[in-house]
Every structure is written in C-alpha cells, then in structure tokens.
Design a protein around this nucleic acid. Structure first.
Lengths: 210, 210
DNA sequence: TAGATTGTTAATCGATTAACAATC
DNA sequence: TAGATTGTTAATCGATTAACAATC
C-alpha cells in the first residue's frame, strides 16, 4: 500500500483536501463522489479514485466518500495532523504579504519567524512577529527545530540563503525567487514565479493582441 | 514542426529562458550546451534537446547553443516580443506586493491597471497606478484590450471576478485565490497557492518533526 | 583531424482512462 | 430490489531517456 507513490499523485492530494474542505463548509453535505469532485476540479473521476487507492479504501460503493472522513485521512497522509511552524526569509513587500496572509493557519502552517538582512527592517514588527537579523537565523532555526521555510528574497540572495537554511536543518523550501536552486538530496524545493506562469500562458495567446 | 506541442513542454520553455537570461548576464559567455543547461535546471539534457526540437534546430553540433540567439527564439515562441499589459484585481497585501514587483517589466509584462472593490482602497495609488473600482473594470478592460489578469482576491470573490474578466475579454488568468476556477474553453488559467505547495512537501517530511 | 554536441530514433518508463465486477 | 459508485484491471496514451549518426 505504500510502494513509493508518484510525486504527481502527492501533488493532487492537497487539491482534493482543499475542495473537500470547501464542501465541508456546507452543513447539509455529508458525502461526495469521485465524479462530483472531478467535476469541480476539472480532472477525471478515475484519476481521483486511482490516486486515493494508493493509500487505502476510503469510499463506499453506491454512496461515495464521507467528506469529513476523507478530509481526516488526507490530513494524516500529508502529515498535517499538527501545525507546522514556518520561517519566512525576506521581509519585503512579498514577505509582508505572506506574513499577513490569514490562510496558512487554517490549513496546517504558521509563520513563526521572519528574517531579513536589511538592518533598517530588522527589529520592526509584522503583525505579532519581530523581524530578526539573518545572523541570528542559523542558531534560531536549529534551536526551534523549524523544518520548513519560505524564501522571499531577491534572486541574487536565494542560493546563499538556501544553503544557510539547509545547513540549519530546514528540509522544505518554498521559493519565490526566480532562480533554480541547488539542494542536497532529501531537501524538498517548490517554486513560485508568476512570470514563468504568465509566459507559459502567452504561448497560447495568439500574437497580435496588443 | 507544430503538431500541437505538449503543454508540459511549453511549461519548461520559460525556465530555459530564465536560465539563459541569467547566463547572458555574464559578458564572457557566448554559448551554452544542453548539458550545462540541464545541470543548472536539474533536468536531463536529452529532454532539453527534445523540447527545443519541437520548434526548430537552434544549436550547432560540437558547439551547442548561442545564448543570445536561443533567447530570441524562445522569446518569439512564447509571444514575448512585445510587452503584455496586465490587469491586477485585488489591492490587498498581495496585490500591493505584485504591483510593486520590479521583475515583471524586464520579462515581458507590465501591470497597467489595478482594481479593487473596497471603496476605501479605490482612488489610492500604488506606485504610479490609481486603484479603480470594480464597476469600471469591464468597460476599461474592453477598451484597453487587456488579455491577461492577475487575480489576488479572497476565495469567495474569485469565481465571480473570473467570470467578469472573461466576459470583458481576458484570456489568461493567474490566480492566487485558493479555489479551482471554471472558465470557458480558450481561456488559460494558472494557479498559485502556497499552502498547496507546502502540503505537498510535508508528505515527504517524516512526521515527528515538531 | 579529434573532440564535442546536436537532433532524432526507438526503447523504456510512467500516467491516464475506460470499463466493469463487486457491493453498498 | 434497482441504482449508484467504488476499487481495480488492462489498455491506451504520452513523456522521458539512452544511444548514436551526423556534423560543426
């Protein structure tokens, strides 16, 4: 039941979880089906059933899936049963937006540290968090045991900060810097670059649109 | 040479372009190879050659690829030969961060409009842009011919705003709202949800890390 | 020339889908 | 029971990779 599951399957589980949580917001709804979920997510129902079957049997023939039960199973599978503390590196505009985002807490994460290397920013507060200097970072992360970081620094600083984070025990990095990062095996990296996403879409937009 | 190229191939082209642009920053560098590019991006050289071969022959045996020339070809392929105007919907923390981001212009995009439905925000300025009311949006987009929008509104408002954008002629939407959107055929949608990315990574983090 | 590297082919690998027996 | 929907199989579809002739 756990013969190294494809990464692409793991990538869809959070989408299932997100959609199920929306469904759970409706108090009248108790169950859903792979068809309904598929419809709402724009993928095939067979894919959803196949993905879930990697982890067990969560549904009932004729009835479908109990929404709350499936949420609990996915929460376990994704290791979201406890809240993960997250370090934010970079307190620029994007850092501020991330630190202020209310959506983390509800879904398993909490930014508990903010670091920046600009002495003019260090010491200021964002919400309840005081911005700390980069020189404190390694010791602080090791001491607090934080394993997840969000990188919101300029491209030039990204690899250096990544190296420091990994050295300090961080094992998962969500990077907003527009560069490919090099990390040792066992460290997860996920990227978000709005321009890369826009550039993919413009391929499909016939030229000529001013 | 153009028998509907796989979407996954198109998705990698912006990454090639980004890495090549970094290489071009080094004045000593004239050419690169599929091997070097592969190394820097963490993918296979065969994949890079295969991807590029969908569009033509851009390299020279024994020499590799001329960096500047390949940048120009990719720029054409992705329709980045002119700057695309972009409408930003939502002027919260994230909207501010996006509107202030210097990285768009250099890579083919310019946010030229910002809309928000909060009357306390409308009329304020972000950089050189004045925030406009949502009620102006449809007419303004149609008149300006804008085809690309970035959606930075709460989940609840996302589908309604999407419908309005599509109705007003927008054909590509980059959404930061944590919901699946429904759009008619021919409209591109790309998503960015940091929590989804974090949740994918926690799967690989052994539980127990407090 | 000798060495390097492309573009392409064919093989391999992996993911998606259609279909259906099982069963609630 | 009749209808609905799962979990799973096998077939299909698509993407990646290894290998190499061509050639700069």
């Amino acid at each position: 039941m756990d013969h190294t599951i494809p990464d692409i399957v793991i990538g869809r589980l959070p989408l299932y979880l997100r959609e199920l949580s929306r469904m759970e917001g409706d108090p009248d709804r108790i169950t859903t089906s792979s068809h309904e979920l598929a419809e709402r997510l724009g993928i095939s129902s067979a894919q959803i059933r196949k993905d879930l079957s990697h982890f067990g049997e969560f549904g009932k023939q004729g009835t479908g899936y109990h929404v709350h039960y499936l949420i609990e199973r996915l929460t376990e599978i994704l290791h979201l049963t406890h809240e993960w503390p997250v370090a934010l590196v970079g307190a620029g505009f994007l850092g501020h937006a991330l630190a202020s985002y209310r959506g983390f807490q509800r879904r398993g994460f909490a930014i508990t540290r903010v670091f920046d290397n600009d002495s003019a920013t260090v010491g200021k507060t964002i919400g309840e968090l005081v911005v700390r200097g980069i020189e404190e970072m390694a010791a602080d992360l090791r001491e607090s045991g934080i394993r997840i970081a969000i990188l919101a620094v300029p491209a030039d600083a990204a690899q250096t900060m990544t190296d420091r984070l990994v050295e300090a025990g961080v094992r998962a990095i969500l990077s907003y810097a527009p560069v490919s990062l090099t990390v040792p095996p066992g460290v997860q990296v996920s990227y978000s670059d709005p321009v890369v996403q826009l550039q993919q879409m413009t391929y499909y937009l016939a030229a000529g649109g001013e």
